Simulated scan of single mutants.
Amino acid sequence: MRSEIIVNTAPGAIVDVPGLQVGHFTHNQRLTGCTVVLAPDGAVGAVDVRGAAPGTRETDLLDPANLVERVHAVLLSGGSAFGLDAASGVMRWLDEHHIGFETPFGRVPIVPAAVLFDLPVVRPGDIPHIRPDAAAGYAACQAASSGPPAAGNVGAGAGASVGKLFGMDRAMKGGMGHASVRVGPWVVGALIACNAVGDVLDPSSGQILAGARTADGQRLLDTQHALLCGDTGSRPLPGTNTTIGVVGTNATLTKAQAKRLAISAHDGLARSIRPAHTTLDGDTLFALATCTENQPADLMLLTVMAAQATALATLDAIHHANGVQTTLGYLPSALEMGA
């Protein structure tokens, strides 16, 4: 009998994967924050970096050829390279809870991390030099649970924006999104902080939901079409964008198989962001396999599920984003633009 694919109307979340928890920390004095995905019992980890300007930590350890098999947390953060400091707080929390990589001299928490560039998104009255730090990472761990996580302007997606090729004054608000897909005994969930230079569109209809706006700010421009017509835009600095995220599954995978899951998850970004994986983005996706389902993994199916969950989580980030006034202009939400 064929398995039926289940995609919840409420799109679900990575916490639908047994063994994973999510915690957000959002600053109240600056629109930035961080998000942690905890795997207290450990998860086989991998990563795939497709953007040309990533900001990451501990990604080399996730290479299938390298030593560490399991990790216990992945951190996503705003604040550009400054935000990598938040991983130290995640390490401290894990250390206090005696969680980490076993050595003869104690446990060493391994915390892979990726950051996005949200420094231009400053509201009037914000304190610009505030960025996620070790205290923020620790607080995200304290907030972590297996309950439905918040979406939109929270955590690593708090200061996210999209459609920036023609300047921040014509961009829109991005955010944090979630989704999960179930087939048979397997579940794949995704958590995405969408901060792309390109537009976000619904793959099922081709409709652009958020992105660069026309010069009068009233309509969506269609970045890809504009580029193909010879409009080069203002070309933001490399690394000033980036969509980062985590896909998780209950399947039992090796590191090499988890790497394949992360690779395939990027297909979901390519379906929902146009253009994706540019020289101006640092697109990075992690994969975590909690190995709680013992049935032999159908890797072909799991990779399809990963791409689907990633695309849905990207759309969820846009649907839940709220417009904000910044010192560089107003960033409207997709809802405000009629999407």
Rank of each mutant, 00 (worst) to 15 (best):
S205W: 06
V154W: 03
H129F: 12
L165P: 00
P104K: 01
I6R: 14
A87M: 04
I14L: 15
H72V: 01
M91Y: 03
S333V: 03
G147Y: 04
V183S: 13
K259Y: 13
A196I: 03
L285E: 07
M337H: 09
V188A: 02
A287E: 05
T214I: 02
A43K: 04
E102D: 15
P148N: 08
G282F: 00
R235Q: 14
T103P: 05
P132F: 02
R274L: 12
E4Q: 14
V37A: 11
A334F: 05
A10K: 14
A73Y: 02
A212R: 02
M337I: 05
A210S: 14
A114Q: 07
V111H: 09
G282L: 08
T223Q: 12
Y138Q: 04
W186M: 01
D169I: 00
A265W: 06
A317G: 12
G174C: 07
A339G: 06
A270T: 14
G211I: 06
A190G: 11
T242S: 15
M168F: 15
S204Q: 15
A289Y: 03
A135M: 10
I263Y: 03
N66G: 00
P132G: 07
N153A: 12
T56N: 15
V44L: 03
T326A: 08
G175N: 07
S333Q: 04
A334W: 02
H72T: 01
V36T: 11
L312N: 13
T249A: 01
V246H: 06
T249C: 06
A46R: 04
V49Q: 10
D126Q: 11
G206A: 09
H97K: 12
I263R: 14
G174S: 11
P332L: 08
G45N: 03
L288I: 08
V108Q: 09
D216Q: 07
L201P: 02
V49S: 01
G323E: 05
V246M: 03
